[in-house]
Every structure is written in C-alpha cells, then in structure tokens.
Computed example of a mutant assay.
Amino acid sequence: MKLNCAILDDYQHVAEQMADWSVIESQVNIHSYHEYFEDRNELIEAIQDYEILVIMRERTKFPEDVLRKLPNLKLLITTGMRNASIDLKAAEKLGITVCGTRGKGAAPTELTWALIHGLSRHLIQENEAFRNGGAWQSTIGVGLQDKTLGLLGLGKIGQQMALIGQAMGMHILAWSEHLTPERAEAVGVQLATSKEQLLAESDFLSIHLVLSDRTRRMIGAQEFALMKPSAYLINTSRAGIVDQTAMIEALQQGIIAGAGLDVFDTEPLADDHILRKLPNVLGTPHIGYVSDDNYKCFYEDAVEDIQGYLNNDIQRQLIYVRK
C-alpha cells in the first residue's frame, strides 16, 4: 500500500517541478497544497490522513496539540536544518521522525542587500514616479561608501554580509553575545564593545541571529532610542528578535529613518496591517530564501529524506536536545 505525502504552503505551485518526485511515485502519493491554512482545525482536517508531510520553513506551525491530532503522521520534513515552529520533543514522544534539508546561504544575503539598496536609493518611490509620470528625481539617495554597516550576528550570512559591505567601502561593525575578537578579525570586521555601541554607530543595522529565548525581543524601545534617527533597520532573520510594537512606534515617530523587513510575527501579514502602510518600510513577504537554486536544494533533499525513510536509512534527522 502506498503512503500519502502532502506538501504544504506551496504558494508558487512549483514544489513538484523542483525535484524528481517520480523516483518515489511507486511507493508514495504526492499532493500539494497551495494555500495557507489560517484555521488550525481546517489544517488538521486536511492533513490527518497523511503519513508524510513536507513543510516550508515556519510557514505552518506544528506544536504538540497539532501533532497529537495527526495519528497517521510518521515523517515530517522541513526545509532547512532548523525549524522553531516544530515541537521536536512532542514529535519524538509521538514517534514522528523529523528531517531537514540543506539550503543555499546566498539567497537571504542577496535579499538583505536588495532591501538596503532599495531603502538607501528610494527605489520604490522613484520607480513608481517613473512608471506613473511623476517627478523626475524627487529624492536624494543615501550613499553606502564610508557608512557603518552594523551586523547583529556574524554567522555564515553575517560573514557574507561583511564581505559585500567591505566591497562597498563600508565600515563593518559586529556584535553578538558570544562573538570573539578573533572571529571578527578573521573576516576583517571590528567587534563592537557592546550591543549599545553597535546600535549607536550603525547607519544600517542588519540582524543575522537565530531566534531563541536569549535573542527574543533583543531589540526593543530602549535599543531603538540608542540608534541614529538617520539609521535603517534590516531584518531578514526572524521577526521575534525585534519587539514589533516598539519597532512600529520607532518608525512612526521618526526615531529611526526606516526599515527593510522580510519577516513578521504572523505570516501572511494581515492585509490591513500597519506595516503594509508605513511609507518608511520596504517590505517583502518572507522571500529571503525563495530562489530557484534554494528551492531545488530544498525539494531534492526532501525526496532524498523520503527515500531514506522508506529504506530505513534516515537522512538529516532533527533531534530534540534535552536541556
């Protein structure tokens, strides 16, 4: 008897084109869902008969109360090797194998720079004027050369950001709780003496941290008050690292000049949300990882994960780490 596999949140209708699913079609039936399930009960009703689920990042959450209502679920595959929206402890307890996939690190770096350029050169405003017959040259851009790029986190993406910033002629300043002078020096970056120094000196503050209890709401009202009124916040990491209420107030009151945002507390963001309306926000719908090479890597690995499960050779398993 064939197993049933659901691919969730395939917004662009491309999941089945990004990998060769035919290698498992003799053992697995594949069905893609293209719309987000806003109602949890509707989600459970739709997927409760599936033995395998392939999910995209944190688009749909799988806490314990959802997992318990999926008695047939045996294999849960998430794109990426980390997913804070899956209760790994509950999955282990319920006998659900959780696996991840690899990814291409360049895509989120590329989008982060697109947001920086879009904000600094007012690209949306100028493009709209160009298309609609508006004023010819209505803004003055902010040059990047000799400005300070502040990196909150210097992991793989943060290091890529630093290299590109250096090529732009920017001064690179970085800080995170466990960042050492040796690691910063290895990529030619100055280590800020404190988070406060990073905030006060950055012209563009870009966040590249993992969301955890330690980093949740790390940037709040007090932190925004330390930033330059000409500074821009860029967040393509996780929305929860920034206090969203404090950020909105900072944007509305001109405490900072603007923000480039790709991540939000609730996704998709409500149509009438204030962040969709603020003129100093350049927003994208969590597309930092949405690129052709990344999607191919995600879904090809998902197929490998399913093959591994069928052959009792589990690939890229995500394990609950007991604290």
Rank of each mutant, 00 (worst) to 15 (best):
R276W: 15
V54K: 01
R102D: 06
G105E: 14
T139C: 12
D292I: 13
M170P: 04
L173W: 02
E38N: 14
V303S: 00
R131T: 10
D292H: 14
E38H: 15
E64D: 12
H171G: 00
V23L: 12
S138L: 11
G153Y: 03
G155L: 01
E64I: 08
K156P: 08
E16T: 14
A91N: 06
D292Y: 13
A302N: 00
I157V: 11
A84K: 14
L149M: 10
N72I: 03
D49P: 06
N127H: 14
E51V: 01
V242A: 02
E16S: 12
L53K: 01
A200I: 09
V290A: 15
M56E: 11
T109I: 11
E35A: 10
L310T: 03
F37T: 00
L144C: 06
E185T: 04
M56W: 12
K277D: 10
L111G: 00
V290P: 04
T97P: 03
V281G: 04
N127M: 10
L318P: 05
A167F: 04
D49M: 10
V210P: 12
L70R: 07
E38P: 09
A15N: 03
Q137S: 14
T97E: 08
A90I: 05
E267C: 03
I287H: 09
D213E: 15
N132G: 09
V281S: 07
V14K: 14
R216D: 11
L67H: 04
